[in-house]
């Protein structure tokens, strides 16, 4: 992998972030009516109007506002929330210790399920096990995560009473309690992701094991376990890595749904409540931060791709 490639890839990521920020900004120019009046209601004090207008930065023309907003992003300055009267950046930062463990643990669990299931299914293509795995993934793709979550609540909270139905407790108070709150959300999010991953792992292993170099490795008399580990899995891993990158975006999005099902006060619930209160600076911030995370993850995956597979040439 060359330095030129790395630089170009980073540059593209910057352009993507810039375009994504522009989209978020432009979308909000379309808010109908006067946002200041919308917040203050019909009978407002003109002085209050001027203060709020300045606070929201609406006393500048759109292009200038865009420049100010863009300049704030690298500093983490995303404006002020209307409904919570705090900095958007701080609000988002405070929710990360809730959302990131949820998403991180889910993706880990999804991989722990999907890798063995996908590899086993591919190694035994056409067997009963394979059919079972493929059928289960079809079901997994069709069942909406929020319904799966509700069914878990029905079984493990309402009927068995083993786990709390919803809610949250801070990590610093009692980590064990927090873990109990996290079990159902993590499993819900992970199962939905695992369904898609299993299919991808299976097909990339199937594709790899038909390659010529795998046949060559076998004909050299290598142990089957060595062929699987060094020739099939190593190469399939490159495809799987890309998929994990793509999935991460879906996980962050799925996290919003799961946070809502289990009333977990993370980034997703922050954004949903912001919509309810018409708090558009906060929505803007949440959407942008998640979009940037997705672009950065994709960048990392692309670079790792080059590291894992020296055959890949980018020019």
């Amino acid at each position: 992998m060359t330095l030129a490639f790395l630089l170009r890839r980073v540059l593209t990521a910057f352009i993507t972030v810039f375009l994504a920020s522009s989209m978020v900004f432009v979308a909000l120019l379309a808010v109908p009516g006067d946002p200041v009046q919308l917040i203050l209601g019909l009978n407002y004090d003109p002085n209050q109007y001027a203060v709020l207008q300045k606070q929201l930065g609406l006393d500048h023309p759109p292009l200038e506002r865009f420049a100010i907003w863009l300049a704030g992003i690298p500093k983490g300055d995303l404006g002020k929330s209307i409904s919570l009267s705090k900095d958007v950046g701080t609000l988002i930062w405070d929710r990360l210790p809730i959302t990131l463990p949820l998403v991180g643990l889910s993706s880990l669990l999804a991989l722990l399920i999907a890798l063995p299931a996908g590899i086993l299914a591919a190694r035994n293509k056409g067997s009963l096990l394979d059919v079972l795995v493929v059928t289960t993934t079809q079901l997994g793709l069709a069942i909406p995560s929020f319904w799966l979550g509700i069914m878990f609540v029905l079984i493990f909270a309402v009927n068995l009473g083993w786990l709390p139905a919803n809610g949250w407790s801070n990590w610093s108070d009692d980590p064990l309690k927090t873990a109990r709150y996290l079990i159902m959300p993590v499993v819900t999010l992970a199962l939905g992701q695992a369904a898609g991953l299993v299919r991808m792992v299976r097909s990339s292993v199937l594709e790899t094991q038909n390659q010529d170099y795998v046949r060559t490795a076998r004909s050299k008399g290598l142990l089957e376990s060595v062929v699987i580990r060094k020739h099939i899995l190593r190469n399939a891993a490159i495809n799987i890595l890309t998929l994990v990158g793509i999935q991460f975006g879906q996980l962050l999005a799925g996290g919003i749904v799961v946070e809502s099902v289990f009333s977990i006060p993370g980034l997703g619930l922050l954004g949903l409540n912001a919509v309810r209160f018409g708090d558009y600076p906060l929505v803007q911030g949440v959407v942008l931060v998640i979009a940037i995370m997705i672009v950065v993850i994709n960048l990392i995956v692309d670079v790792l791709y080059g590291v894992l597979d020296p055959r890949i040439r980018y020019d």
Partner: peptide, 20 residues
């Protein structure tokens, strides 16, 4: 590429706060 950085739910948040 930029559009792909927004999963459906993010777009929905953004559009819902604009259009209700």
């Amino acid at each position: 590429d930029a559009l792909s950085a927004f999963p459906t739910i993010l777009l929905a948040l953004l559009i819902a706060v604009v259009l209700r």
